[in-house]
Computed example of a mutant assay.
Amino acid sequence: MRMGKGVEWALHTLLNLNMAGPAALGTGQLARAHGLPAPYLNKQLQQLVRAGLLVSTAGSRGGFTLAKPLTEITLLDVVLAIEGNEPAFRCEEIRCGGRIGELSPKPTGPCQVKSAMLRAEQAWREALSAQTLADIQAELDQEPAIRTVVRSAVD
């Protein structure tokens, strides 16, 4: 499975908002901090708002702030907010097609390939839900200069 750039952008933006402090930051500030196109980043930010991970405030002092602490935001939350909740694998029941399908008895149980892929995806989702952004922030905090750089970059 391949995730779009939006997931990476969303993860960094959430972490940057945390490191920058409590003030709301606008799309332009956040986009400039990483050299991203503001209109596309804004799309990701709006998806994070809809998912309840960010709060958007209008006005001259408006912008985006975290809706909850990093301890309550998992990697899975961000992936689902940006990519959606569709399964990564879609079984097309090709086992029933072509010559093999013609020559084989009609299947009575679930497709073994589909079952294996769903188990793997479930494990992937569990791994993502076991990691919070606070876990990543703790790793970033091992490099104290990062917080200063982020604050300077968004000013």
Results as ranks from 00 to 15, higher is better:
M1P: 05
M3R: 13
G4M: 07
K5S: 13
V7G: 06
V7K: 05
V7Y: 09
W9L: 09
A10K: 01
L14Y: 03
N16L: 02
M19V: 03
A24Q: 03
L25R: 14
L25E: 04
T27K: 06
A33Q: 09
A33L: 03
Y40E: 06
N42T: 08
N42A: 09
Q47C: 08
A51Q: 05
A51I: 00
G52H: 07
V55D: 08
S56V: 01
A58C: 05
S60N: 09
G62R: 04
G63F: 02
G63Y: 03
T65D: 05
K68A: 03
P69F: 03
P69H: 10
T71E: 14
E72T: 02
I73Q: 01
V78K: 05
G84I: 05
P87S: 07
C91D: 15
C91W: 04
E92H: 12
E92D: 11
E92A: 05
G97Y: 08
I100K: 14
G101E: 04
L103D: 07
S104W: 02
P110S: 04
V113L: 12
K114P: 01
K114W: 08
S115E: 15
S115A: 15
M117A: 12
M117L: 14
A120L: 15
Q122N: 10
A123K: 11
A123G: 14
L128N: 10
A130T: 02
D141S: 13
E143G: 01
E143L: 10
P144H: 00
P144T: 01
V149F: 14
V150P: 15
V150K: 03
V150T: 11
